[in-house]
Design a protein around this nucleic acid. Sequence first.
DNA 1: GTTCCTGCAAAAGCTTTGCAGAAGA
DNA 2: TCTTCTGCAAAGCTTTTGCAGGAAC
Lengths: 149, 149
Amino acid sequence: MKRKAIGEQLLQKDIRPSFPRLRVMEYLFKNRNHPTVDEIYRELVQEMPTLSKTTVYNTLALFEEAGLVRRVASSENEARYDAFIEDHGHFRCESCGVLYDFTIRLEKAEEEGLDNFEIRKRDILYQGLCPRCRNSGIKKLIIDKGGYR
Amino acid sequence: MKRKAIGEQLLQKDIRPSFPRLRVMEYLFKNRNHPTVDEIYRELVQEMPTLSKTTVYNTLALFEEAGLVRRVASSENEARYDAFIEDHGHFRCESCGVLYDFTIRLEKAEEEGLDNFEIRKRDILYQGLCPRCRNSGIKKLIIDKGGYR
DNA sequence: GTTCCTGCAAAAGCTTTGCAGAAGA
DNA sequence: TCTTCTGCAAAGCTTTTGCAGGAAC
């Protein structure tokens, strides 16, 4: 998304498109790897030397309230953010820590016991091993047993 | 689960069943509402006045490593724990903050793009309004508009 | 001129670490 | 005795708050 389009999106939500806000939103659109506040800050402070983390916090809270981004569920102590898009799942590799997106369709899922609930947000977090770490793990095991050279 | 059975479960994992450990595990079995460390501590310190939060942290980390409990994914800054049971979903009410469990069957879910991943853990977190808050919200709206007395 | 935005500094809250004394094997 | 466990105190990190200067309208 172009910077101008982002500005218009912000204006639609009555958010003045200041430069820091534009850049935070642009960063989230370009980096779909669920960055932390610190990651966003460290990247943007390079071009905005006076940027403070408080502004990043303020901006993300503002965006979240407006429904433009969401804080994704995780098992960590640090918040991670995501430019809001339709429901999708996150897979976190326990070995290398990389976060993967995957599409998930839950129409067929039986959500027993939620008959009268109003569902506004679905967070799906899987954990395990990504293909790369899984393979290297298997190789390592074989090597340990002397099966390979 | 009885305290003795919990002790045996700990021994199976080579964890000495000290009193603090027994009580933390027992608390998790009785309170399936995904308590925070602070909630566990505040409850247990009443019967163990010398208990420290460090011990609760140590104990939970030990249990998690042994696969007895898991830290559930959330959008908060505070860790929440769960005695490990089979996959189920969590619903958090945005209004009253209560966490609900629901059963979810994902056999039919299409998990596109995870063909070669090893899935070890699934966290499903929904957010929205629980029936009670949803209804009170509707009522409030009507009252505000003068529809009710 | 008034409101909104930014950013520094301090405070707050959760978690981890270091260490020493106590308890258990 | 030797290892393990507990808990105090301090440190570390992330996040929030208060406030003042500056920018935008």
